[in-house]
Design a binder for these strands. Structure first.
Length: 879
DNA sequence: CGATCCCGCCACATT
DNA sequence: AATGTGGCGGGATCG
């Protein structure tokens, strides 16, 4: 159609389009001039598309402006065709003259219509995902550009990204050849491997080396990355034998950036990468100079890349909510595992793939490209294809290379990130010494889809990037030890932590640091424990994971194996994924809010469910009975509850009730309303409190350790959220667990560690528990249906599973509460709030002493509601 | 107002 | 020198 249109169009519009047309023509048909399309020099139109503007337009229909318009329209037409009806095209022109506003508006190409993503889809639509090996499709940039009605420049944007994934390769000037997705999995695999090396190291690094932080800092200065070499990492390019000069800077960007970006996803356990983090990571150069403009530019590029990747169905946009607000992020929805091994030429991953040979085919093209010399070296990507590659780049990337280099790079990267984060944090936080830590915390909620795993939600902390940032600041600057000390500590702590959280580099690092500062020895203890627990606890985990796993596995299988399916663009997959999403943690909306809403009708939200679970858990452990009551009461009795609340502080119920009330009144913000906002903060607070409290305040030295643990928890939480929760331990096995699953592992970890000392740990557990339930509806039908009811049961279960139960349970609640506090402010029910707030705040201190908690529990068991306890405690403490 | 990201200038690479 | 590529960032648009 497009073509058709084009032809039509061309004739019609004599205008500026001409250049385009010419180019097209040339491309399309021999007849056409070979000339490159000239850029249209049009004049900017003043405006636009407002109604008034339209009038203007009309008025001046004859005027050049009109032309521009038309021209534009034409350009867009293709696009419109695809989406909208272009039925009027021809009419359009006429229409323009007399057109009504409406028409105009309709026609007016909205920005979206011109989006790169859309353009890319169109582009992709023109070629088969899995072309027959026999046919070689060549792509003429000019042709495509003209057909799609866009400038060539835009095509470059698309092609460059596709090229980075080897979907196409450049054959000659203005000519690319289409390979399709045949070796996509191979490419991804390669990238994943490369990513591990590049970024994975960070993770590993931590594990292995404890000195890490210090080192990093010390080294940080070093440029670390010499420049070209490192970047070579990816693949292609640079080294090529062909023309040395070629390497030059050009190759750098889009292509490489695209690959790196993809690598981040593949390496990330959560499979979610926030834009800013990615940008930071991708800015390799001078670490320190964070330069805002540069960052901004990077982000812009990432959007470009993301648009293309989205069109390919490899990623989708999500939002990570952080304290400040939501951050844009992308979630990898493409294949995660690559069955094939890299090496094998034949069957490579996609064995299942119908076209095994495809690979070869792909290779061929590459080679060809290589031959072409030119810049193509890059083409020869990582695959075996690269003939030339002997170059160092390879070396560098290779495993052989000493860790150090990587480390260095890693370090440098980390450092950069850290620096960035710091700055950011500082900026954000500003002075707030105390508060600062809080501010940084990110919360998971996301508006559209949140990725928060329950656990995360609980903790608020989380998201990958943020956490790291925030943590560091908070930790370093603030409370604990300033930077350095942390490092030392970190060692101890880190190692432990790390294991758990495999996750993103930066964040984690920062986290670690923090943790280290806080936790100290305890951590170690904790860790081990955690590990044990994790190991031992298989049962607990098992329940959840399995389901998740299955899903995943199946899912995975599908992807890899069934490339065919993939053919279509993202859309399909996405849909599928969405289904997955829940598991993953992604919540439809306002996770936090929803959580509370046990009652909330909008059953839809998984997140909500999770939360509910939490609540339940909390309640149940402490006071199952209460929980039940509450659950039952919920909405209706809000008022009553309210009263009761006021009356009985002791009972947590009030808290719940509040929430419930809230829910009733507002579907979303339920009891926990507070939680959301705060989530991030709260977590921090916790940490703080824990640290401070214990150390400074009340807890005995002996207990400190325990206290310290709590601190640890924080990190973990952060980590968890960060990484997504996949606990490291678990992860490995389940690695796949992408999004959602995390919770289980996480929880486990936490639980373990937490156990001893504090709630935090519990939280983890809880989280775990939750996961079981909520994560996969399929698993537990019940839950989904009746969250509230389930609660108690759930709790029981969770407790049982957890073992520590009560403590655990408590812990969770606490966390939540804390979260709430901060958040609560906004939402809240007035009456409750005030009191609660204080209580909550204080809570941390109280938390500090595990024993106390336990006691409380015993006494108050029924209360379960952490809130109340806290309140009580807090009150006490306050006193 | 922040998130997106279109648009196209213009530098550098290739022909 | 002309043309191909594509880095880059202003500023418009979206949400």
């Amino acid at each position: 159609e497009n073509i058709f249109d084009q032809s039509r169009m061309a004739p019609k519009t004599p205008i500026k389009n001409e250049p385009v047309d010419l180019s097209k023509q040339k491309v399309c048909t021999p007849e056409r001039n070979p000339i490159t399309p000239v850029k249209l020099t049009d004049r900017p139109q003043p405006d636009p598309w407002t109604p008034t503007a339209n009038l203007k337009m009309l008025v001046s229909a004859a005027s050049p402006d009109m032309r521009d318009r038309e021209k534009k329209k034409e350009l867009f037409r293709p696009i419109e065709n695809s989406e909208q009806c272009d039925t009027h095209d021809s009419l359009q022109y006429d229409m323009v003259d007399d057109c009504t506003v409406d028409e105009f508006e309709k026609q007016r190409p909205s920005r979206k219509q011109k989006s790169l993503g859309l353009l890319c889809q169109k582009f992709l639509a023109r070629y088969p995902s899995y072309p027959l090996s026999t046919e070689k499709t060549t792509i003429s940039l000019d042709e495509v550009a003209s057909i799609l009605g866009v400038e060539r420049r835009r095509i470059y944007d698309i092609v460059n990204v596709l090229e980075s994934l080897h979907l196409v390769s450049r054959v000659a000037k203005n000519q690319y050849c289409w390979h399709g997705r045949h070796n996509l999995s191979q490419t991804l695999k390669t990238l994943q491997e490369e990513g591990e090396l590049q970024y994975g190291e960070l993770m590993t690094f931590f594990h292995h080396k404890e000195q890490d932080l210090e080192y990093k800092f010390g080294e940080r200065k070093k440029e670390t990355i010499p420049d070209s070499q490192d970047r070579s990492l990816l693949d292609f390019s640079e080294p090529d034998c062909t023309s040395a000069s070629a390497n030059s800077r050009k190759d750098k960007s889009l292509r490489i950036m695209s690959q790196k970006f993809v690598m981040l996803f593949l390496v990330s356990k959560t499979k979610i990468v926030t834009l800013d983090i990615a940008a930071k990571i991708l800015i390799e150069e001078t670490q320190d100079t964070v330069d805002h403009s540069k960052f901004k530019t990077k982000v812009r590029r990432l959007y470009d890349i993301a648009n293309v990747l989205t069109s390919l169905g490899l990623i989708k946009k999500v939002h990570v909510t952080e304290e400040r607000g939501r951050k844009p992020a992308f979630k990898w929805i493409g294949p995660v595992e690559f069955p094939g091994k890299t090496d094998e030429p034949t069957g490579h991953s996609p064995t299942s793939n119908p076209l095994p040979r495809t690979q070869r085919v792909a290779c061929a093209p590459y080679q060809i490209c290589a031959t072409g010399k030119q810049r193509f070296t890059r083409h020869a990507s990582f695959n075996g294809a690269q003939p030339c590659e002997g170059t160092k780049r390879k070396v560098s990337s290779e495993p052989n290379s000493p860790h150090q280099e990587r480390q260095d790079e890693y370090c440098s990267k980390m450092i950069n990130l850290a620096a960035v984060c710091r700055q950011k944090i500082e900026e954000d936080t500003g002075n707030s010494s105390i508060s600062s830590p809080l501010s940084p915390l990110p919360v998971l909620g996301d508006s559209d889809f949140c990725v928060n795993p329950l656990p995360q939600a609980v903790f608020p902390v989380v998201q990958t990037d943020v956490p790291s940032l925030s943590l560091p600041n908070g930790i370093c600057s603030q409370t604990l030890h300033p930077s350095t000390p942390a490092a030392s500590k970190t060692e101890n702590g880190k190692p432990t932590l790390l294991p758990n959280q495999p996750f993103l580099c930066f964040p984690s690092s920062s986290l670690f640091m923090l943790c280290g500062g806080l936790q100290e020895n305890n951590l170690r203890e904790t860790l081990p424990i955690a590990g044990e627990v994790g190991n031992r606890r298989p049962e607990a985990q098992a329940p959840v994971p399995p389901a998740a796993c299955q899903k995943r596995s199946s899912h995975k299988c599908m992807l890899p194996s069934a490339p065919a399916d993939d053919e279509e663009p993202a859309a399909k997959k996405q849909s599928m994924e969405q289904s997955d999403v829940p598991l993953s943690l992604v919540v439809p909306k306002k996770p936090f809010e929803s959580p509370e809403a046990e009652s909330s009708p909008r059953s839809g939200c998984t997140s909500a469910v999770h939360l509910e679970d939490f609540h339940l858990d909390l309640a149940s452990p402490a006071a199952p009975e209460a929980a039940d009551k509450e659950s039952t009461k919920p909405l209706d009795s809000q008022e009553q509850e309210k009263q009761s609340q006021e009356k009985d502080l002791d009972e947590h119920s009030p808290g719940k009730e509040h929430t419930s009330k809230e829910n009733a009144s507002q579907p979303f913000l339920p009891q926990y309303l507070y939680v959301q906002p705060t989530a991030g903060v709260s977590s921090f607070n916790f940490l703080f409190s824990a640290n401070q409290a214990p150390g400074a305040i009340s807890l005995a030295a002996s207990q400190l350790p325990s206290l310290s643990v709590p601190c640890v928890m924080v990190p973990s939480a952060a980590l968890a959220s960060f990484p997504l929760v996949c606990s490291p331990t678990i992860t490995s096995p389940l690695s796949p667990v992408p999004d959602g699953s995390f919770s289980a592992p996480t929880s486990v970890n936490f639980g373990m560690s937490g156990l001893a000392s504090t709630t935090p740990v519990f939280i983890g557990t809880t989280a775990v528990v939750t996961p079981k339930v909520s994560p996969v509806p399929s698993v537990d039908p019940q839950q989904p249906a009746h969250p509230s009811l389930h609660l108690s049961p759930v709790l029981a279960r969770s407790c049982g599973a957890v073992k520590l139960d009560s403590p655990v349970c408590v812990g969770h609640p606490v966390t939540l509460l804390k979260l709430q506090q901060p958040s609560s402010a906004p939402l809240t029910p007035k009456s409750i709030r005030p009191a609660h707030h204080e209580a909550f705040f204080k809570t941390p201190g109280s938390l500090g002493d595990p024993v106390a908690w336990k006691k409380n529990e015993g006494n108050q068991i029924r209360n379960a509601s952490s809130v109340q306890r806290r309140l009580e405690i807090s009150s006490t403490s306050a006193d």
